[in-house]
Every structure is written in C-alpha cells, then in structure tokens.
Design a protein around this nucleic acid. Sequence first.
DNA 1: GTCTATAACCTGATAGAC
DNA 2: GTCTATCAGGTTATAGAC
Lengths: 204, 204
Amino acid sequence: MAKKKTIEADLSTQEKIKEAARKVFTQKGYAATRTRDIAEEAGINLALLNYYFRSKEGLFEIVMVEKLQQLFGTIVPILNDEGTTLEKKLELVVLCYIDMLTAHPDLPIFVLSEIRVDPERFSQRIQAGKLLREAYFLKQLKERRPDLHPLHFVMNLVGMTLFPFVGKPIFQAIGNLPAKDYAVLMEERKALIPKWVQAILKTK
Amino acid sequence: MAKKKTIEADLSTQEKIKEAARKVFTQKGYAATRTRDIAEEAGINLALLNYYFRSKEGLFEIVMVEKLQQLFGTIVPILNDEGTTLEKKLELVVLCYIDMLTAHPDLPIFVLSEIRVDPERFSQRIQAGKLLREAYFLKQLKERRPDLHPLHFVMNLVGMTLFPFVGKPIFQAIGNLPAKDYAVLMEERKALIPKWVQAILKTK
DNA sequence: GTCTATAACCTGATAGAC
DNA sequence: GTCTATCAGGTTATAGAC
C-alpha cells in the first residue's frame, strides 16, 4: 500500500507502460499528455516507451481501441438480445454502465472529447453506429412509442446514466458532497433510472 | 458570404483575436491549440497575439471565464427566481439551454474536459456551486420530493438536455441522421423534456 | 500597431553504451 | 531490455525594424 500512485511492479514492462498510458491518456487527453508523463507513471525510462511502442500516436491508438470497446462493447449484446423485454434491457444497461463508470469515471468524457478534437480519426471506428442502428432495442422502442423517434429515449437513458459522471466535478460542487456521498447517489440511480425511463415511456 | 471560415474583418484586431481564440480553443481544447492556429484564424500575425494578450495562457483564461459565464450564467437567475413555479423553471431552463447549445454545441464538452484535465485551475471558479447550492429551485425540489436528493432531478434535467449535444457525433451515427434532422430532434426536445421531468417527479 | 526574424524552450524520438 | 545523452522538429514568446 506504499505506492498507489505508481503502477504495480509485478507486471511486464510492456504492460506497465500500457497501464500507465491508459491512466494518463484518459485523464489528460492525447494532446496534454507527454510521453514523459507516461514513462514516469510507469516507473520506466522514456526510451523504453519508444522501444515497446513505436510512437505516442501508436500507443494512443491501442488505448483508444480498448476504451471504445469498454464504452460500447458491453451494452451492444444487451441491447441486441431478442429474448429480453424492454424493461429488462433498461435495468441491465443502467446496472452495467453505473458499475463500469464507478470504476472508470472519466471514460466517457475522454472518448467524447477525443472524438470532438479529431472527428475524422474515429469516423470509421464508430461502427458502433451500425451495430446499434439495427439493435433489437430500437425496434422495441419504436413499437412501444411509434409517435416519437427512438433516439429520444436512448438520449434520455444514456444522458441520465452517463452525464452524472461526465459532470461529476460540477454536480459535486453544487451539492457540496464528498466523494463518498456522491458514490451513494450513483448507487441509488441504479434502481431509479429504469423506473424513470419507464415513466417517460408512458407519458402521452 | 465569401469567407465564412475566417473572422469578420470589421472588428478591432483585439476582438478578432479573441473571436478566433473562442473558436479554436472551444473546438480543440487548450493543449491541442497552437497560438499559430489562432493567429491564422484571426487573419493576423502571430506576434500580434502576444502584443494584445500576454500569453496563450492569458488568452485562454479570458475565453474560459466567458464560457463559464455562458454555460452557467443564464440559468442561475432562472433557478433562483422565487416567483416562478417548478414547472415554469423547467420549461425556461430547457428552452434557454437548447437554444444556446444549438448556437454553441461544443460549449459543455469544452468546459467539462478542461476541468477534467486540470481541476485545480477551476476549483475556485466554480462558485457557481455556491450560487446554485442555495438556489430556490433546489428548495422547491426538496419540497416536492423530500424522499430523494434534489441533485437526482438536476442530473436528469441537465443530462437529458445537455448530453444530446455532448454525444452528438455518437447519436448521429446511431441514428444515421443528417445534421438537419438532428436539429429537428433538438427542437422537439424543448417541449418534451419538461413533460418528462415532471413525469419523473411524480414516480413513486 | 503590425510585421519579420529569432531566441528560448519543450517534446517526441533515436543512437549507442551497458 | 534498459539506461543516458542527444538530436531534430515544433511551439511560445520576444526583439527590433517599419
């Protein structure tokens, strides 16, 4: 417990570097990150970073692919499951996201802000679009509420679930809450959001 | 109409630079922005930037203060108004935000990601926290639903309103929508979100 | 006020010893 | 595989002419 700040020592050097890169890139973003920061965080020399990974850009790509998978990969199978009800999907997605975001709070803002800085770079890689566009979930929404675009409900669900993490510093300041209490609110939302989304689905 | 890309020529040089800085900083973030980009966007020489504003950091501070004001300044008076009902406040906030965000879509992600990169830098300046913490709006929420932390409803309201702009590239990919159609959805949400939040307030 | 030229510094990447 | 030392290129900021 002496060093929580630096990377575990019992990993391969390559893995230490990748782990450090995950941490620094997601916290500061690509542009604000210096390869020296990553090397220091990994407890190794700067030259080693370029020995294992060709370049800063290359290392970033690897991390980014992981993060995109982390952010979208988990929910696609849930939303595409033809054997579950709409209600069940809501429960599962919220549960799954809140657990994941509690462990990795700045994952969404990292991904979203990198996309914003350089949209071209990821235009192809958001095939998550394709996967989700035909999701069974959307069919179920369309069936339940043919009068409104299903994207409205996706926005509501994702907004209510992700945004408290994206805006955490702001909300914490408004509520004047210590981190512990904030975590309690997130726990509460696991059960609340599905109910709220269902209430929204029923509004005329 | 010949040049929409560059800054209007009939502004003072100082204002041209500031306008260019607003545009480039908000789109690329502090770290990814080069002062050369701003100078070019402003149609002036790099040295002039340092003549009018001491440094990149200094220019950024000025822009950031403006943006914080733009993001929070508008809603604080609405939420603090003791003469309006909760329902009216919901309507006004949503209307106000969606109009503002339609004009400045990447305002929230800019502010949030800069805060994430360097939280210390803004810890003092988010006194918006103080202003909002005692907002009359929160009292009204607490009165309506004493069983739940008022922050839950703030998160829902803000999440449903802001997140569609923050996640625009993703949602657009999912829905395979051209920008025009996306704007239509945002228009629709002006009337929908207040109803939805009220439905949420009524869930037992 | 505005420009050109350049100083001073920082960052990514490599060469070469061990 | 890992390190130290250093290069090459780019970025901020300034000096000085006009």
